[in-house]
């Protein structure tokens, strides 16, 4: 299996979800085993260059960076192809989260082939899961619920369950029939999928 370095907000939950998605969309993968863990978006942005450099030195060929677009998402634009990375990244609080991550990816992960993809669910990973669960239509839509905490609670309930339960609940949603097709209705998922589709496959295809 191909080893992937995962930089995400919770390795045991978000990490497991994105590993599953990579396996579905690309090829079977396993995580790079490392004690490095992240806590929150600022933490990922601050330590991502170090993390990716360490992974590169360890011979890891692929990396996935996943952070939520949460927080002041009322101001955060969803990522647009025409975004200028430098401009967006100059304001880490209000800039596009995808651009902020792009800005700190070391060059060895871009060249000669890009092997690092950036996933930023809008607004959080639970937005995707709520969409799949098909709760009674939310007004506004889950993507327009801007509070990270509120989205987490909408999916998991008022108190956070153990991480194994969170992982099971999320994977259950993703294993439901046509889950990927349904997620393709969301722009932030399509952006993630497009990057994965562009990765060279381990078998050279």
């Amino acid at each position: 299996m191909t080893v992937v370095a995962l930089a995400c907000e919770n390795f045991d939950y978000d990490g497991a979800v994105f590993l599953h998605l990579l396996s579905c969309l690309w090829a079977p993968v396993e995580p790079w085993v490392t004690p490095i863990r992240f806590q929150g978006r600022n933490h990922v942005l601050k330590y991502l260059p170090t993390f990716l450099s360490v992974a590169f030195d360890a011979g890891v060929q692929y990396a996935l960076v996943a952070i939520d677009n949460d927080g002041g998402a009322r101001r955060h634009p969803e990522h647009e192809p025409q975004h200028r990375v430098e401009e967006q990244a100059s304001d880490p609080d209000d800039g596009c989260a995808v651009c902020c991550v792009e800005h700190v990816i070391p060059s060895e992960w871009r060249e000669p082939a890009r092997r690092c993809c950036v996933a930023v669910p809008v607004q959080t990973l639970e937005t995707w899961l709520l969409y799949l669960r098909g709760d009674p239509p939310l007004t506004p839509s889950p993507e327009q619920v801007y509070s990270r905490t509120k989205l987490k609670k909408m999916f998991f309930g008022p108190s956070m369950p153990p991480v194994a339960t969170r992982r099971e609940q999320a994977l259950l949603m993703l294993q439901s029939p046509h889950a990927l097709d349904r997620l393709r209705a969301l722009r932030s998922f399509r952006h993630f999928e497009a990057q994965v589709a562009a990765w060279p496959r381990p078998d050279g295809t």
């Binding site: 806590q39 929150g40 600022n42 927080g71 509070s147």
Partner: peptide
């Protein structure tokens, strides 16, 4: 600070 500036309680 938590919601708009992505701080964590630990920070």
């Amino acid at each position: 600070a938590l919601e708009e500036h992505h701080a964590t309680p630990g920070e």
